[in-house]
Each structure stands twice: as structure tokens, then as C-alpha cells.
């Protein structure tokens, strides 16, 4: 048996910002729920945790980050801080997606959430977890996951959908492969479709629970790396954020003269 590693996990993919320090298999977390304060609070929270446990960055084995989807700015704050800390301490960065981090967190942090708690405490052999985040502009980031033997398994990758497509696709997933499986929906993406939750509930013959207040958390990311062995390792610190929304309609300029060859030709 090797010694249990110590590492740090960071998440700022929503208005919640969280930091988890893993020391000898124990998870210690700090969080802040003030929107637009992530850059201000993240390093102080990290320092507080390190000091409290008498650790330095160089004693860690890696830094885990949620690379999105979620708030573009939040994701970049998180990645930039992870890059600075990791590069400066010679540590690799391990990145996971924030929806998986949310699903994992929901599976371990259900106690204060009665609906979830009653489903999880019945220890179902399989549980369908659909994390969903409000992507604004009337769209939702989501993925589908099965929890089996306490391990998360992706059954669909993170994607971006309109509310109508989201409800249709989730209903299809339940009908096709999980009609008898208890189902939980977590994350504020579910607030966008509150009036359509009954459509989903009718597809599922087992227990269902929804909780929009559970958001991605660094502890979810930290546990995914440990339990599920999720995560992409970057030794050089270069990580591509997972924005999903890449085709944003920024208006391109209209030209009169022909465009130079480096840019695509536009009509006059």
C-alpha cells in the first residue's frame, strides 16, 4: 500500500466557489457563495486550508480542477489559479468536467437534502443522476450518469440543450434504460424546467427527487479522481476549458473591400 496522497481540488464553475484539500484520505472543504467574488476568495481559502493542516503546496501530488461547463469567467479563474499554483510548485493538473463533479457531489452530500437523502439512504443498486446547470440564454448544460456500487459512470457526455430538447432527451434516457431505476436531478439547470418535471416523473416508475440547490463542488471533483479515477492529467499545465458553447453569434464585420487572405471572405 502506498501512502495516501494529499492534493487540492478547485471548482468555480457556478456562483459557488469551493476548495477541497485531501489529506490522508480525508476531505476538508471551504466554500463561498458570493457571486463574482471567486478571484478574491479562492487563494485565501486555499491558504487557510493549507495552514490549518500544516501543508505546503509542494507536499501535494496534484491539483484537480473542474474545467467546465459553467460560467466562462469562473472556469477561467479556476484554471488560471490552478495553472499558477501547479506550474509554480511543479505539480500536474488533473481536470474533470463540472457536471460529473456535481453528480458525484450529489451522491455523497445528500444528507441536508431530504428528497435525495431518502433515495440514497435506501442504497439502490443503480441510480440515474442527471446534473444540469443553467447556461443562460434559455439553454442547459447537462449529462446523464449512473451511480452503481457508489461509482459514477457517464452514459452521456456533457452537452448543451434547449429546455424542450433537454426534457425530451432525459425522458428518452429514462424510458430506454432506466424506467425502474430511481432518478435524481440536481443543479440549477432544473429550475429552468420546473414546470416540466412531471413529464419526466411519469416516465420513471421508481422514486425520483430533484434539487436545484446542489451545485458543483470541489469535493465532488476530488472524489471523482480518487474513486472513479476520472480526469485528464496535464503535466505541462495546459488545459482546454470545456465551454461547450463555442458558436456564440458574435457579429462579424461587413467589408467593402475584399478581405485580406488571412481572414475569411465576406460579402459587401
Amino acid at each position: 500500500m502506498s501512502l495516501p496522497e494529499s492534493y487540492l481540488a478547485l471548482d468555480a464553475s457556478t456562483e459557488k466557489c469551493s476548495v477541497t484539500l485531501v489529506v490522508e484520505g480525508r476531505f476538508h472543504s471551504r466554500e463561498c457563495n458570493i457571486p463574482r467574488s471567486h478571484a478574491k476568495v479562492m487563494l485565501p481559502l486555499i491558504q487557510e486550508l493549507l495552514n490549518e493542516h500544516g501543508m505546503t503546496l509542494r507536499e501535494l501530488s496534484k491539483i484537480v480542477v473542474s474545467r467546465g461547463p459553467g460560467s466562462f469567467t469562473g472556469i477561467r479563474i479556476c484554471l488560471s489559479i490552478a495553472q499558477g499554483l501547479a506550474y509554480g510548485s511543479g505539480l500536474p493538473i488533473v481536470s474533470v468536467d463540472s457536471l460529473a463533479a456535481l453528480a458525484k457531489y450529489a451522491s455523497i452530500a445528500a444528507t441536508p437534502h431530504p428528497g435525495l437523502h431518502s433515495i440514497l439512504s435506501s442504497s439502490p443498486s443503480r441510480l440515474l443522476i442527471i446534473p444540469a446547470l443553467d447556461a443562460r440564454m434559455n439553454e442547459i448544460y447537462w449529462s446523464a450518469n449512473i451511480l452503481e456500487n457508489n461509482l459514477i459512470k457517464h452514459i452521456s457526455e456533457p452537452t448543451l440543450s434547449s429546455p424542450v430538447d433537454f426534457v425530451a432527451e432525459v425522458s428518452a434516457i429514462i424510458s430506454q434504460q432506466a424506467a425502474n431505476t430511481p432518478f435524481v436531478g440536481v443543479g440549477h439547470g432544473w429550475e429552468v424546467v420546473t414546470d416540466q418535471i412531471d413529464i419526466i416523473q411519469t416516465k420513471c416508475s421508481a422514486a425520483t427527487a430533484f434539487d436545484a440547490s446542489i451545485l458543483p463542488h470541489a469535493e465532488g471533483a476530488a472524489r471523482l479522481v480518487l474513486d472513479e479515477k476520472f480526469g485528464e492529467v496535464s503535466e505541462d499545465g495546459v488545459i482546454e476549458p470545456l465551454y461547450i458553447r463555442n458558436e456564440v453569434a458574435w457579429e462579424k464585420r461587413k467589408r467593402i473591400r475584399p478581405a485580406p487572405q488571412t481572414a475569411p471572405q465576406k460579402d459587401s
Partner: peptide
Amino acid sequence: LIGALLVGACVGRSLAMAW
């Protein structure tokens, strides 16, 4: 630009903390 500033400030400040 706030988003642009944040990238340099976060990387720079964190590097200094690590160093």
C-alpha cells in the same frame, strides 16, 4: 477588460504564492 485582466492576475498571483 475584466475577463482578460482576471487571467493574468490569477496566474500571476498564484505563481507568486507557489514561489
